[in-house]
Simulated assay, not measured.
Amino acid sequence: MIPVDVHSPASSPTVVHVPLGERAYDILIGRGALAASTERIAALGARSAMIVSDGHVLPRHGEALEAVLAQAGLRVATITVPPGEGSKNYAELERVSNALLDAKIERRDLVVALGGGVVGDLAGFAAAILRRGVRFVQVPTSLLAQVDSSVGGKTGINAPAGKNLIGAFHQPALVVADTALLDTLPERELRAGYAEIVKYGLIDDRAFFEWCEANAARVFAGGPERDHAVAVSCRAKAAVVVEDEREEGRRQLLNLGHTFAHALERIVAYDGARLVHGEAVAIGLVLAYRFSAQLGLCPGQDAERVRRHVAGLGLPSSLAEVPGGFGSPEAILDAMAQDKKVKAGRLTFILARGIGESFVQDDVAADDVLAFLRQAAAEAVPA
């Protein structure tokens, strides 16, 4: 266990400030944060707001959000998109953009993303390009979105060539991470979101990883440990975003495990019934540590410790656990070639020297990656 004064659970809702000059904003975290956000939303000075949500989330939480926006004095309109990664496409972007125009949403108004990472990415990108930039508010309703995609201003849609390849950096005006909204999440979604929490410990905070090892069950149970995990994750991401807003250096560390994960998502054609993003990240984290160990960078016992933690929580931890198969090592490598971190055709990986000791490695040899993938694939085939 780690000292209480380092990572102790918060007893009340927390405010994490993201100091980005004119683009600075706050993240409200805790049970009841949505109801407590009325004054902050009113202070933004908008006249109108359009909620972008999906057909699963809106019936659960739309009424509460509409009430908050109305209390803040805003005229409110709503549009829904189909649930799932398939909505991050040109057709839905066009439909949402046209709905925003029809609702006469102006630059000083608000686009409000109510949902998980898909809704946040899509709504945020629509806000980024509408009238060359409209303000937006993130109200993330999944654990993954609360600790990762709602913070940092990365918005976008997918393309046939790969995930999130069409997009823009567009910071939100406010993030409201009401952890009570997670109570309605299916267990699978909670576990998938946890992969993005433990990632922060693996990047550069060994003490937080150790806290996660001791408290993961309590995070799932929804007690103060959940609020604490969300707050620690948001602080960690905010610190990196402030240092490297446009992912030109240190922010790349936030992609630990994601080079593998995005490739696997492309292999399954972004079919969330087979593999959701957090599950792909869980596999990717394990593979990133195993690859680091194979390259002689990371102790094998650390890589195994990561695998045990991930697998012990019911998350997938190997290629063998990709439903419907993972194609081939060559197919995975080909998918990696479209990763956003590729520079001059050369692969960039986030590797590790140990737990909490990740670093960016440019120009990783494709032959080394392919040899590792072939070994991992061979282990995935029953003898």
Rank of each mutant, 00 (worst) to 15 (best):
N158A: 02
A335L: 04
R108H: 15
A229I: 06
E210Y: 00
G133W: 08
D227K: 00
G257W: 10
H262G: 10
I350C: 05
G312F: 09
R353F: 01
N89T: 05
S97E: 05
G124Y: 11
A383W: 03
A236H: 13
S87R: 02
V364T: 09
Q375Y: 09
D148Q: 11
L93F: 05
N98F: 01
V322L: 06
G21H: 08
P140A: 03
A43S: 15
Q294S: 14
K88N: 03
R235P: 04
L264C: 04
P3Q: 11
I166V: 15
L313R: 15
Q71F: 00
A280F: 04
A380N: 06
G354L: 04
A231Q: 11
A231E: 14
P316T: 11
T155A: 07
A214F: 01
V6C: 02
N98H: 09
K154L: 06
V281C: 11
P19N: 07
S12R: 15
G223C: 03
R246W: 08
A376M: 14
R308L: 12
A177Y: 12
L174K: 07
R95P: 02
L122D: 12
V119D: 13
I355A: 10
L313E: 12
D302S: 14
A126R: 12
Q138V: 13
Q138P: 13
V219S: 03
T38S: 09
A70G: 15
R40K: 14
A238E: 06
D271A: 10
I2Y: 05
G193Q: 02
L93Y: 00
Q138R: 08
R218G: 05
G284F: 00
G312Q: 06
H228R: 09
A161R: 09
D363F: 01
A67V: 05
A207W: 04
A127P: 11
L58E: 15
H61D: 10
A236T: 06
R251P: 12
A36M: 00
G117Y: 03
P186F: 08
Q252G: 13
R307M: 08
H277M: 11
H56K: 12
Y200C: 15
K343Y: 00
V4N: 10
A173V: 02
H262L: 07
L34T: 12
L44K: 07
